[in-house]
Simulated assay, not measured.
Amino acid sequence: MNPEISTRPDTAGIPAVADGGDGGDGGSVVSLLERAGSVVVPIAVGLYALLYFGVEQVYGAFNVTPEQVGIDQATMFGRLMATIILGVLAGALLVGVVVGIAWLIDKITLGYAGRGVRYIRQRPWLAAAVGAVWCGATYWGFLGYLGADAASNALRTVLVATIIGVLAFLVPFRLLRRRPVGRAGMKIAVGALTGIGLGFLLVGHMEDSAVRVAKTGEESFTLSLLGFQDQWVIPFENESGKPLRDGGKVMLLGEADGVYTFYDCRAAETFRVPAEATGIKAISLQPDAKERVCAAR
């Protein structure tokens, strides 16, 4: 009998190519994206979760709610599109600078810096301790928002961060380091807490800026980036044409449900009038300082 002839091609000696579409490089690209996403996404989610809370604090300085001036989640996101694009551009530059500095440090130290990082990652207790202290430091934004004025004391900041981190995160992070899924969970927890800590710092700065605007009428660069419209108008009665508030310019906070909401900086008072019975003129977006008449100036 004739020996059975195989119809399969002879692949002996041909190196196998890993699935990835790019000759083996696809896997590394996907891995890089997964690693970056596991850090960036939780930070972004934590920041955005506190952003609307910050908007509430901003309009709270004018004794109104965001809903009363027509601000909801969709409106806020639409106003933030330009800021998000600028943030992505600035973030790309920052990441590039950080990567370059890290590479330079590793070269200057003849590779010892990179080996030190790998040594820490391979030691569960050390890696858990670093993550715990970092998470403790993120609580400083929350404590600062509550009014703890210790940000100027670096030693006190380090002590508080260490105590919070050791008590709350050290042992859980050590247990998470046992398995790959636990290590991924630790990254998500660190990223989320980092975003929340940065968010509370941002909320505190937003609230301080809003209080300053309410007192002096000065333009705030931070609030303008976050979608706050610095618009000044002269409201008047439609029927009689008589200007409201003696014809002085007031800040237009917004309109919702057929009602205008204005802020009179001279009287430090917020008032609301029906939109059907009220007209506006002399509209100025981000006007000069001479048009911002306030009692505190």
Results as ranks from 00 to 15, higher is better:
1 M>S: 14
3 P>T: 09
7 T>H: 14
12 A>M: 12
12 A>K: 14
13 G>H: 08
13 G>N: 15
14 I>N: 08
15 P>Q: 15
22 D>M: 14
24 G>F: 14
26 G>N: 12
26 G>M: 03
28 S>W: 12
32 L>K: 02
37 G>H: 06
41 V>T: 11
45 V>Q: 12
47 L>H: 05
49 A>C: 06
50 L>H: 07
63 N>V: 13
68 Q>Y: 09
71 I>M: 15
74 A>Y: 06
76 M>L: 15
84 I>Y: 15
86 L>N: 13
96 G>A: 13
96 G>H: 13
100 G>W: 12
100 G>D: 12
105 I>W: 09
111 G>L: 08
112 Y>Q: 11
115 R>I: 00
116 G>C: 12
124 P>C: 08
124 P>G: 04
134 W>E: 00
144 G>Q: 05
145 Y>I: 00
146 L>A: 09
152 S>H: 04
155 L>C: 00
156 R>N: 01
157 T>N: 09
164 I>A: 09
168 A>M: 14
168 A>N: 11
169 F>K: 03
169 F>P: 03
178 R>L: 03
183 R>G: 09
191 G>K: 06
192 A>S: 08
194 T>I: 07
198 L>N: 02
203 V>A: 12
206 M>G: 11
208 D>V: 11
229 Q>R: 12
230 D>S: 10
235 P>C: 04
238 N>H: 06
242 K>I: 01
249 K>V: 02
249 K>F: 07
250 V>D: 11
251 M>V: 03
253 L>N: 10
256 A>L: 01
263 Y>T: 07
266 R>V: 08
266 R>H: 00
275 A>R: 08
277 A>Q: 08
283 I>N: 14
283 I>W: 02
284 S>G: 01
287 P>K: 05
292 R>V: 14
295 A>I: 07
